[in-house]
Amino acid sequence: MSPILSVRNLSRNFGAIKAVDDVSFDLAKGELLALIGPNGAGKSTCFNMLMGQLKPSSGTVQLMGKNIAGMQPRKIWRMGVGRTFQITATYASMTVVENVQMALMSHHKRLYSLTTFAHKLYREEALALLDTVGMADQSERHCAVLAYGDLKRLELAVALANDPILLLMDEPTAGMAPRERIALMQLTADILEQRGISVLFTEHDMDVVFAHSHRIMVLNRGQLIADGTVDEIRNNPQVQEVYLGGGTLFKAQEDANA
């Protein structure tokens, strides 16, 4: 089966600095793939090229066989790529359901319908998405008063509004309490399984990465230094040395699961 996402020789230079250097990988349908690495490794730069916020210096990004490298973000989104951000991006003055309705209006190319009747558009569809992420009971609350963990779940509902085949999640659990992190990633994994969505996510919490990833890639100084299963990455000497300082955090995680 052909991969949902196929990246070949992807690079991005900022002057003499190679933020991403000749990265290649595939992402299969329904796969949950983690992209990890130390700060400054190039993870966010890689994400920004995949979603069109940055144009690659070289290389290709193929979505279902079509090269999307350098394409505008809104066009990539309409092709079925959703994204969540490290810092949540919602409309604080709007209600929870209105935020999802806005995303649905964009998906259905109805943003020109911003009239007094806009609040009626796609409401049931928006409520269904909120139910999927466990936020239906807060649909009429304004985003400005939501807890941070609830904002993250709302952002996930917004990302699902275009019925994506691929979700890009940039540090989805950043700023969340440990229990909230586990709950959000379990929710994401369940949605992935139900809908057959592929997910590429970056994350610093190794408990989250090890618990939910089907596969893990490791970036260091812009280069892909490892790609494998949880056990392969956990036991990779180069990863332990470069990313986790000799493997002490991996050992601590193993002890916690023992």
Rank of each mutant, 00 (worst) to 15 (best):
G15F: 14
L156C: 09
V7H: 04
V96N: 00
K66C: 00
N257R: 15
M1R: 12
T188D: 01
D21T: 06
A211V: 02
K18H: 15
A89C: 08
Q62P: 00
A34V: 09
C143L: 02
D207C: 08
P178S: 12
I17H: 08
I76N: 01
D26G: 05
L63T: 01
N257I: 08
L156M: 15
T115P: 00
G222D: 00
Q138S: 14
A136C: 07
A252F: 07
M79A: 15
D255F: 13
D22K: 14
L121K: 11
L156V: 14
K18N: 06
A103H: 11
V209P: 02
L160W: 10
L160K: 03
L167H: 07
A189I: 03
N236K: 09
A183Y: 02
D26I: 05
V230M: 04
A69W: 05
P237Q: 02
D227A: 11
V208S: 01
S2R: 10
Q240K: 09
A103Q: 11
A211Q: 15
K29V: 03
M79R: 15
S213Q: 05
K75Q: 14
L224I: 14
V81P: 06
T84R: 04
M79F: 04
P164S: 06
I68S: 00
K109W: 05
A28K: 15
G175C: 11
A118M: 13
R110D: 13
Q101S: 05
R179M: 05
V23R: 02
I17M: 12
R234Y: 04
T90M: 11
P73N: 05
R215E: 01
